[in-house]
Amino acid sequence: MEQRVKKLGLVLRQLRQARGWSQEELAERAGLHRNFVGLVERGSTQVAIDSLFSLADALGITASDLLRQVETPPASASE
């Protein structure tokens, strides 16, 4: 479980940075507190389902797409 929480944080950070947004901007767009976004990105807290949907909506993706990215294993160097 802890690995998934950390992976979610990493995926969120990558998506946010790809858009050129600060944590504060993502938090504002999602209706969440910036400190909470930081905790999620560091994998320091679990995310309630309503917050997960808010983050995904703010990023312009579905919650299922967000979770799919968390569940997808990284490609190996041999592929």
Rank of each mutant, 00 (worst) to 15 (best):
F36R: 02
S64F: 07
D50R: 14
A58Q: 00
Q23L: 08
Q17P: 03
E24T: 09
D50W: 09
E41H: 05
E71S: 11
V70A: 01
R4K: 13
D65V: 06
L10N: 06
L66E: 01
S64E: 13
R34L: 06
L39T: 05
H33C: 07
I49T: 11
A58K: 03
S64M: 10
A58I: 04
Q23M: 12
L15F: 06
L39V: 05
D65H: 11
Q3E: 15
G20M: 13
L67H: 01
A77W: 11
D57G: 09
L12G: 00
P73A: 10
Q69Y: 05
A30V: 02
G31Q: 06
R19Q: 15
E25G: 02
A56T: 04
L66T: 00
S76R: 14
L39P: 01
L12D: 00
L8M: 11
R16V: 02
E71M: 14
A27E: 01
I61L: 12
R16F: 03
G31Y: 07
F53M: 09
I61Q: 02
S76F: 11
V5H: 04
Q3V: 10
L15A: 03
G9K: 02
L12Y: 00
V40P: 02
V5A: 12
V37Y: 00
A30P: 00
S51L: 04
P74C: 07
K6E: 14
K7S: 05
R4Q: 15
L67K: 05
R16H: 04
A48D: 08
G60M: 14
Q14S: 12
L32M: 11
A77H: 08
A63C: 10
S22F: 09
A48Q: 13
L8K: 00
W21C: 04
G60F: 14
A30N: 05
G9A: 03
R34N: 03
A77M: 08
G20V: 08
V47Q: 02
V37S: 01
G60S: 07
S44F: 11
Q14M: 12
Q69I: 04
L59S: 00
R4L: 15
L55Q: 01
V47I: 14
V47F: 04
A27F: 03
M1N: 10
R34A: 10
L12P: 03
Q23F: 05
S76Q: 11
V5I: 15
A75N: 06
L12I: 12
G9Y: 01
G9P: 00
E24K: 12
L10T: 07
R13D: 04
D57Q: 14
P73L: 15
L55C: 03
T45E: 05
E28V: 07
S44E: 15
R19P: 01
T72E: 14
E41N: 06
F53D: 07
N35K: 09
R34F: 05
Q69D: 07
L39A: 10
D50V: 12
Q69F: 06
G43V: 04
